[in-house]
Design a protein around this nucleic acid. Sequence first.
DNA 1: GCCATATACTTAGATGGCTAAGCATATTTG
DNA 2: CAAATATGCTTAGCCATCTAAGTATATGGC
Lengths: 187, 187
Amino acid sequence: MSKRGGLAQVIQHHWREAVPDDRLAHLIKDASRGLGRALQMRLAEHGVSFGHWTFLRILWNGDGIAQRALSDLAGVMEPTTFSAVKAMEKLGYVERRQKPGDRKQVFIHLTPLGQSLKDKLVPLAEEVNAIAIDGLDEREIATMRKALLAMIDNLARDEEQAAGDNRRIPSTREVAGRLSGAQLSRK
Amino acid sequence: MSKRGGLAQVIQHHWREAVPDDRLAHLIKDASRGLGRALQMRLAEHGVSFGHWTFLRILWNGDGIAQRALSDLAGVMEPTTFSAVKAMEKLGYVERRQKPGDRKQVFIHLTPLGQSLKDKLVPLAEEVNAIAIDGLDEREIATMRKALLAMIDNLARDEEQAAGDNRRIPSTREVAGRLSGAQLSRK
DNA sequence: GCCATATACTTAGATGGCTAAGCATATTTG
DNA sequence: CAAATATGCTTAGCCATCTAAGTATATGGC
C-alpha cells in the first residue's frame, strides 16, 4: 500500500517479497487458472469444452483403453470420467465398447470425428503455451518443471500417508494415480 | 507402456523429457490440485471448506471491505463471492453490513468467530507449504516464483487483449483483478 | 435536474471436479 | 467349488467456479 513506482512494480514486489510462505500456492493456482482460461477461450471457438480436452488428449495418444485407465491417465476420479465420456459419446467423439468375455470393463474408442479434432485443437494448446512462457528462458522453465515435479511428488506422498493413516493400504492404482495425475500407463 | 526401472523413475522420465510443450500446463494444474487437496484435507478436520479459506484469508488481512473488492482480491467473479459470503454468514463467520448513504455496496465484516479461526487455520497452510517445498532450495523456489509470475502476467495480457478485441475497453478493475487474482489493494 | 451509463449485488443455470454408496462382475482363497 | 474380497462402472448429490442476465442504485454529461 502506498508504494512508489507503478502498478506492475507493486504487484511484482508483492508477489516476490511480501509474500513468503503459503502464497506460493496462490501463484500456482492463479497460473493454472490463467492457463485454463486461455485454452478454454480457444477451445470454445471450436465448440469443445475444456473438460473434454483432457480426455481427448489422452485418447489421441492411444484409444481403446478402459474407462478406468482413462481416469488414471487423466488424474481424475471415475465419476468425472464417466460423465465426460458419456457427454462425448453423445457428441459423437467417442464410442464405448465391451470385449466378449469381459462384462466389466468398458473400452473407449475415438470416432473419426473425435480423431479429427486433434489437428484443430492441439495447435491451440501449443499457442497458449507459447504465450504463457514468452520471455522465459530454457533454464528457468527447466527449473520450474523440476520444482513442480518435486512438489507434486511431495504432496502425493503426504496424501498417500494420510490415507494410509486412516484406513487401509491404498491400492497401487490409487497411489500411483494420485501421484501426478496424467502420465503413461505403467506396469 | 512397458518401461523398465520402477514407477518413480518412469514418471520422472515422462514429465521431464517426453513432454515438451503444452504439458507444462498439466504440471501446474496437478501441482495446484495437489496443494488444494492437501489443504482441503486439513481444513476439513476443522470444519472449514476450501472455498471459505480463500475469503477468510483476505478478511483476516483487513475486513470491512466491499463484496466487490473481496472478489477482486480473491480473484474470483462476483457470484462466487456472493454465495461463499452468504454461506459464511450462515455459519456465523462474517456479517454483511451497509453504510448509511450507500445502498449499493455491502461490506463484509468478520465476527469474533470468523476472526478466531485465523490462529487455527493459518498454520495448516504453512504446513502444507512446508511439505510441498521440502527438498527444494531457495534459488529454485525463487526461479519458480518469478516464472509463474511472468506466466500469469503474459496470460493476463493475452486475456485482456482478447476481451478488448471483442467488446470494449476493460475497466482497470477488471484488468488488474485478472492480473493475478490475489494481491494488495492498490491505488 | 434528468437521462444514460456504469456499478454492485443478486439470481439462474452450466461445468467440472469430488465423495459416498450401489451394483455387477471377476478373482482369490479356504 | 463357494464364499469373501476386489474391481469397474454407475448413480446421487455436493462444492467451487463460471457466464449470462436481472435489479437496484450511483454518477456524469447535457
